[in-house]
Structures are given as C-alpha cells and as structure tokens.
Design a protein around this nucleic acid. Structure first.
Length: 179
DNA sequence: CCTCAGTAGTGCC
DNA sequence: GGCACTACTGAGG
C-alpha cells in the first residue's frame, strides 16, 4: 500500500509561463515551469485552452511568456507541423505514478508506428489495465510530445482523442512513413 | 451488427 | 471508504 500522496492534483503552488500559438491543427497552448514544459494543449479558443490549463493546475499562478518559452513554443509548433522531429527539452510531468508510467511508455513509441492500449498495459507490467491506460492517455497534459495519439484500439479503431479524433487522425497521417 | 460482463485507475462525495 | 464514471476487450447473441 503506497501512500504516495498525490492521488489527486498535487497542490503545487508553482508559477507557470504560458504561450499561445497558431498551428495547422488550431491553437496551441504551451506552459512551462521551472522544471520544464508542464502542458501542451490543443484547441480552437484561447480562452478555453487557458481554462483547461487552470483546471488542470488549479493552484498554479500563470504568467506571461518569456524569450525562452517563446522559443520553445515555436519548436512545439514546428513539431506539430512535422511530428517526426523530436523536442529536446525537459518535461515537467504532473500526474500519478500510474499516469507517469503510461506517459513514459508512450514516449517509446517511435513516430510512424502505433501501439494498442493493451500493448502499453503490458509494457508497464499491468496486462489487465488497458482501460486504465486509456484513461491515463485521456489525462495526458502534453499533447504530441507525449504521443498518446499513437495509441489505438486493439481492432485498429482510433477510439478517442482528448483534443478531437480529427487531430489524432491528422497527426497519424503526418507521421505515416511514405513508401 | 449489438450487448454484456470483467476490469482497474481516478475523481467526487 | 464507497460509487460511478471511462479514449478497453473478448465473448455471445
């Protein structure tokens, strides 16, 4: 029995810098703490994105972007446009132990390939937790960088995507290796 | 095609 | 501590 504390949202009263960008997939919000990128969110309405962020980190203080984050945000957008490229920046992943396990496993799926929820469940040593894996994917705060869009149902269906199945389909299409 | 039960992590009460 | 959620899955009708 672990009493690891953060079964809920960690009461981190950290400050986060926030940048907003346009991309071919819509608006992109990038948030950064002192430890690294804490959120990459996709959407259409900047206000909604900001609400989404506040909802995920209720006790975080949001600040304007700075030069460093501006650069990161540009790189994030570039990565969205060409998902094959990797982002070489530290991440600040807030989540439960289980969620972190899942998100880390997701980062091992190379661009151009996919995995199933059961694959990930096996990879983290919990073969029966496919559904919980899906739930962890749904809670992923780091769009594209943590490639939850590369996870499909066992039957090949796209099932869902926190930021819209259309975006998931588009990302996969962009990553598909040309013959 | 459709429904159903088994399943495990999380959020809310 | 309980209960109702799921971006799941495999079996049965």
């Amino acid at each position: 029995m672990r009493h690891a504390a953060n079964t809920k949202n960690p009461p981190d009263a950290t400050t986060m810098r926030v940048a907003m960008r346009h991309s071919s997939l819509g608006r992109v919000l990038v948030a950064q703490t002192a430890h690294g990128i804490s959120a990459i969110l996709l959407g259409d309405d900047p206000a909604v994105l900001r609400l989404d962020l506040q909802n995920r980190f209720p006790s975080a203080t949001l600040q304007e972007s700075d030069a460093a984050l501006d650069l990161l945000a540009t790189q994030v957008v570039q990565m969205i446009e060409s998902p094959a490229r990797e982002l070489d920046a530290p991440l600040d992943m807030h989540g439960t132990g289980f969620q972190r396990d899942v998100w880390c496993a997701l980062r091992d799926i190379p661009a151009g390939s996919t995995a199933t929820y059961t694959d990930i469940a096996n990879r983290i040593g919990r073969p029966k937790s496919a559904r919980a894996v899906a739930q962890a994917c749904a809670a992923n705060p780091l769009a594209v960088v943590v490639p939850c869009h590369r996870v499909l149902r066992r039957d090949g269906q796209l099932s869902g995507y926190r930021w819209g199945v259309e975006r998931k389909r588009e990302l996969l299409a962009r990553e598909a290796t040309p013959p």
